[in-house]
Computed example of a mutant assay.
Amino acid sequence: MRREKKDQILAVLPEKIRGILLNHGLDFEKIQEIRLREEQPLAVKKEGKEELFTHRVTKEELRETMEYVSNYSLYAYENELRQGFLTIEGGHRVGISGKIISEKEQIRNFQYITSINIRICHEITGCANKLFPVILEKGRLCHTMIISPPGGGKTTLLRDLVRQISDGNRWVEGRNVGVVDERSEIGGCYRGVPQNQLGMRTDILDNCPKAEGMMMLVRSMAPEVIAADEIGTAKDVEAIEYAMHCGATMLTTVHGSGMDEIREKPLVSNLVKERCFARYVVMKSGKHVGEIEGIYNERGEKLCI
Rank of each mutant, 00 (worst) to 15 (best):
C142P: 01
V177R: 07
I116E: 05
I186Y: 06
K104N: 14
A76R: 13
Q40H: 14
V12K: 09
D260M: 13
N176F: 10
E264K: 15
I118K: 09
R219Q: 11
H245G: 10
V177G: 07
H24S: 13
I226C: 07
K130C: 14
A128Q: 00
G232H: 04
T114V: 12
I305F: 12
K6N: 06
S97M: 15
E241V: 01
G213K: 06
R37C: 01
I186D: 10
P150E: 02
S115T: 14
L161K: 05
F277A: 03
G98V: 03
E241P: 03
R170S: 12
L13S: 02
G95A: 07
E29D: 15
L52G: 00
P266V: 04
E61I: 03
T156K: 08
Q195E: 15
V268K: 08
I17F: 10
S148I: 03
I147K: 01
E33V: 01
E38N: 12
I240L: 14
L13D: 05
L136N: 09
E293Y: 09
G256T: 05
Y75S: 14
E60S: 12
M200E: 08
L157C: 00
R35Q: 07
L42W: 08
G178K: 05
F277V: 06
T253S: 13
M221H: 02
G232V: 01
R263M: 11
I34Q: 02
V134A: 06
E274L: 13
I240Q: 04
E185F: 02
Y296M: 04
K30D: 09
L251V: 09
M283Y: 01
E230S: 01
I231L: 08
M250F: 10
F110M: 09
G152V: 02
I107H: 04
L205K: 08
Q8R: 12
D181M: 02
N169D: 08
L62G: 05
Y280M: 11
M244D: 09
Q111R: 14
D203I: 08
F132W: 14
A228N: 01
T252S: 15
G258A: 08
F110C: 12
V289Q: 12
E80G: 05
G174W: 04
I96P: 02
R263W: 07
K49R: 14
F28L: 09
I226V: 12
L131D: 10
N129D: 15
R18I: 03
K130A: 12
R63V: 13
N270G: 10
V94H: 04
R56T: 11
R3C: 02
R201V: 02
P209N: 03
V69K: 06
S269Q: 05
G126C: 00
R3K: 15
H255N: 11
R63C: 07
G151K: 05
L271I: 08
V179W: 05
